[in-house]
Amino acid sequence: MSDTARPAPHALALQVEDLRVSYGPKRAVDGVALEINEGEIFGLLGPNGAGKTTTLSAIEGLVRPDSGSIRIGDIDARANPAAAKARMGVQLQSTSFQSSLTIREIVRLYAGLYGVPLSRAGVDDLLANVHLGEEASKRFSQLSGGQQKRVSLVIATIQSPPLVLLDEPTAGLDPQARRQLWDRIERLRDIGRSILLTTHSMEEAQAVCHRVAIIDNGKLITVDTPAGLIEKHKNDPRVLKVAHGQVTLEDVFIGLTGSDLRD
């Protein structure tokens, strides 16, 4: 990571160093290093299979890294995973909850798992805050895509974690729902949360992220602010080759990761 890509020094919410993860003989994450400052929204961009979700999974404790270190604030996540998990909120790429439980019961379950004392009225207030008050008695599968994402975000932030990990939080949403979710993400930042999100949307990266990193074949290629990335790579021949007029973040992304279709 270049020094120019780093904003003014802050305490780090997340520090990942030399992270390596393999699935059998395949190296999915290969020496990834990144730092996220407190109150920062950091975007991880990459084609399908680039290693975004695996990087997040390693931070979340879902996959065991081959090597590397992960620190959530001052906690070593590999040595003390329970304490690290208590300090981070997670929205998985495809989340589901017990199909027989109502939204109210799901929120109550996760509040219990994070040690948050929530009464029934407290749960209802929380759901009303995200305009889901009337859906409290419904099952998760009965909600629209946007409502499901809101429930997932409520649960990801139920213990007010300093770090929130969002894996493609707006995938499959209509523009209205996407904008609403961006607002919610920015509100989290406004109250001091640090956010690491993955996305395929350059528009999203530019709209909400302070800094973005491009990852491909398990390696971090570049990190900077969205504008900084364009400035840094606007004269790269690979970028110029795919640009149509003024260089955009998408041109930089495709130029650096290639135009080939990924699985």
């Binding site: 304490a83 208590a86 219990g112 798992l113 994070y114 040690g115 948050v116 004392p117 929530l118 407290g122 207030d125 929380l126 805050n129 932030t157 139920i158 213990q159 007010s160 109250i191």
Partner: peptide
Amino acid sequence: TQSGVPASRPPTLSGI
């Protein structure tokens, strides 16, 4: 917290 949720304590095994 600012979102109106009571602050969490570290979850206990019995609570979990």
